[in-house]
Design a protein around this nucleic acid. Sequence first.
DNA 1: TGGTTTGTTGACCGTTTTAGTCAATAAAGG
DNA 2: CCTTTATTGACTAAAACGGTCAACAAACCA
Lengths: 142, 142
Amino acid sequence: MKLSTRARYGTRVLLELALHWGEGPILLKDIAQKQQIPLPYLQHLIGPLVKTGIIKTTRGKRGGISLLKPPKEVVLGEVVQLLEGSIAPVKCVDNPETCPRSDLCVTRDIWEEVKKAIGTVLESVTLQELVERQRQKYGKND
Amino acid sequence: MKLSTRARYGTRVLLELALHWGEGPILLKDIAQKQQIPLPYLQHLIGPLVKTGIIKTTRGKRGGISLLKPPKEVVLGEVVQLLEGSIAPVKCVDNPETCPRSDLCVTRDIWEEVKKAIGTVLESVTLQELVERQRQKYGKND
DNA sequence: TGGTTTGTTGACCGTTTTAGTCAATAAAGG
DNA sequence: CCTTTATTGACTAAAACGGTCAACAAACCA
């Protein structure tokens, strides 16, 4: 029932980008350092984020990565979903056909409710909200 | 973000016991067959359930395992918690000291909300309710 | 043009976790 | 004492996971 490091790191990366929204590309190296993520690992993390159009990358001098949408429009649900593959606590919730007992299994119904509950929380949080929460904790100082 | 097989099997085992509440011990072998769980695996599953007093075991002829409390009093939360170790989606929610950034990390706050949401669902379901749901799906026929 | 900066990709590795098995043991019943 | 049944511990195979390395590609700059 643990979230993968991919998803945890991924949200932190996007939070970092959201904090610097509007300031142009941020270096992977800097993100790695600020968020304490191994750089080579980070390099792989961003792949899916680019592919789905959440961030864009810029190469060469003064390059880096940056958000494609304003923080207000990026919801945590899609991010976790993307990096985690699925937020369902069991396979059969997303793919009933993987278990022959799916249609009559009452425990499956519970796992489905769990998935919904998780989804509700994650759909209700945007990067913008994370930024605001962070600013409240830290004060404006980065 | 997947539930372990331990937890999935475990709830099915308890459901099976709840369905036969009041009928005396049920053979591990029968449970294994009905719920399609490998018997040797099942043998290990029950260990923690016995230890925490959710079920009791009886050896020898006409032995097996049985619930210690009525199904109404067994809540899914404690079962999953027990078999899963924890329902927190990240370590730092249960043990803030495992991450130095815990007190200032806003993503951690979100994971905490996720944990609460999962907990709320699981605390709201008892074995008795699973039994009733199952009877509704199947009719009274086992 | 060529070199430097930066992201991109794919192959690879070591560890841990997980699901599952096997076999030896212990208790209860008949 | 023999059979039935649960208990325990050692063990294994496979997958997942976190992480690294190195070769490559694009953008920029001089």
